[in-house]
Computed example of a mutant assay.
Amino acid sequence: MTEHGRRRRVLRALSTVLIVAGCLILVDAGVTVAWQEPLTAFTTGRTQAGLQQDLEDLRRRAPTSAEAQALSDLAAEPSRIAFLSRSLRQRARAGQAVARIRIPRIDLDRVVVQGVDPGSLRKGPGFYDSTPLPGVPGTTAIAGHRTTYGAPFRRIDELRRGDRIVVELPYGTFTYTMERQRIVKPSEVSVLDTVGYDQLVLSACHPLFSSAERIVVFARLTGAVGRGSGRGRPLAGPTLSDRVQRPSSALKGAATTGR
């Protein structure tokens, strides 16, 4: 083969490689726009599988001796739930599986971890450290990505008033009813304030592929049932409290990287 022929062969092979690479980039971009970023979705999917087992192990774990002693003095189910909520919140580590969130409207079923730092949100939706876990009166909040790391909250803009949101923890199952949504600046911390009833706040970056704003969903607690050690003497309706808890951290700290 002549020198000229070898050069043409090399150029043809290089052109083929570049064309294939270009096509892969276009496919990746198309999948990201239509659904979610595929590479981080794969890694988060594997992580979620492990978290499901961690959550099951947490559910089966017996109360410590100190917890058992305290629970022996608590007969009412709301009191038992509140005690176990505070106990789990105190010992939960960043990135640890603590709950499961289910939203039928958008076919969401994910394990929720503790924390909204970048590492925790790569695993799945995360509870804000500055708000209580469900079961303690006030506002609890969960952040999640919309385009990367499995994009758990990609479709929360589709939620409508009256839609059901269920959060399951080892000590109780909490049902919330969606009331409204807002688009806010990352610094608008008032969305995490406690109101006159127990509520759940979901937040994510907005619009898609941007962290310029936040989309915030507000849902009211409409049902709470004890599970495991949280079972006790039931009271009518969810427990409310007049205590005011004002979170210290802002939306700015959650779901800002990778969107």
Results as ranks from 00 to 15, higher is better:
residue 74 L to K: 03
residue 26 L to P: 03
residue 36 Q to C: 01
residue 43 T to V: 07
residue 62 A to N: 08
residue 51 L to V: 08
residue 26 L to Y: 07
residue 59 R to A: 15
residue 63 P to Y: 06
residue 50 G to D: 13
residue 18 L to E: 08
residue 30 G to D: 01
residue 31 V to P: 02
residue 63 P to W: 04
residue 36 Q to H: 07
residue 16 T to A: 14
residue 16 T to S: 11
residue 51 L to D: 01
residue 52 Q to S: 01
residue 33 V to Q: 11
residue 23 C to F: 14
residue 12 R to K: 14
residue 61 R to S: 11
residue 53 Q to I: 02
residue 50 G to I: 09
residue 63 P to D: 10
residue 61 R to N: 07
residue 53 Q to W: 08
residue 54 D to Q: 11
residue 46 R to K: 14
residue 15 S to Y: 08
residue 41 A to C: 07
residue 34 A to H: 07
residue 75 A to M: 05
residue 77 E to T: 09
residue 45 G to C: 05
residue 47 T to G: 02
residue 27 V to K: 02
residue 21 A to R: 04
residue 13 A to E: 08
residue 44 T to E: 05
residue 56 E to F: 04
residue 62 A to M: 11
residue 64 T to E: 12
residue 33 V to S: 10
residue 50 G to R: 13
residue 13 A to V: 07
residue 58 L to G: 11
residue 32 T to C: 04
residue 69 Q to V: 11
residue 77 E to S: 08
residue 66 A to S: 15
residue 35 W to Q: 01
residue 37 E to P: 05
residue 68 A to T: 11
residue 35 W to T: 00
residue 19 I to R: 13
residue 66 A to M: 05
residue 54 D to R: 07
residue 34 A to N: 06
residue 20 V to E: 04
residue 72 S to P: 00
residue 18 L to D: 03
residue 50 G to K: 06
residue 42 F to G: 02
residue 66 A to N: 10
residue 30 G to Q: 07
residue 75 A to R: 12
residue 44 T to P: 00
residue 27 V to I: 15
residue 67 E to I: 03
residue 66 A to R: 13
residue 55 L to T: 02
residue 69 Q to G: 04
residue 35 W to R: 04
residue 42 F to A: 04
residue 23 C to E: 05
residue 22 G to D: 12
residue 38 P to M: 11
residue 62 A to T: 10
residue 74 L to I: 03
residue 13 A to C: 06
residue 77 E to Q: 15
residue 78 P to I: 04
residue 61 R to I: 02
residue 14 L to E: 10
residue 69 Q to C: 01
residue 75 A to C: 02
residue 51 L to C: 06
residue 33 V to Y: 14
residue 42 F to W: 14
residue 45 G to L: 05
residue 74 L to S: 07
residue 76 A to H: 05
residue 69 Q to D: 14
residue 64 T to G: 12
residue 36 Q to K: 01
residue 31 V to Y: 03
residue 49 A to R: 12
residue 59 R to V: 11
residue 76 A to W: 07
residue 50 G to W: 06
residue 69 Q to S: 13
residue 75 A to W: 00
residue 33 V to N: 08
residue 40 T to G: 02
residue 40 T to K: 01
residue 56 E to N: 10
residue 57 D to N: 14
residue 45 G to Y: 02
residue 62 A to F: 01
residue 47 T to H: 08
residue 22 G to N: 09
residue 40 T to N: 04
residue 48 Q to T: 00
residue 75 A to T: 06
residue 37 E to S: 01
residue 20 V to G: 05
residue 30 G to C: 05
residue 63 P to K: 06
residue 66 A to K: 10
residue 60 R to Q: 14
residue 47 T to L: 07
residue 23 C to K: 03
residue 31 V to S: 06
residue 51 L to H: 08
residue 41 A to F: 13
residue 38 P to W: 04
residue 67 E to A: 12
residue 54 D to S: 09
residue 38 P to F: 10
residue 20 V to W: 13
residue 74 L to R: 06
residue 55 L to I: 07
residue 13 A to D: 06
residue 43 T to I: 03
residue 58 L to I: 10
residue 44 T to G: 00
residue 41 A to R: 09
residue 15 S to H: 12
residue 54 D to C: 02
residue 57 D to R: 15
residue 29 A to Q: 15
residue 45 G to Q: 03
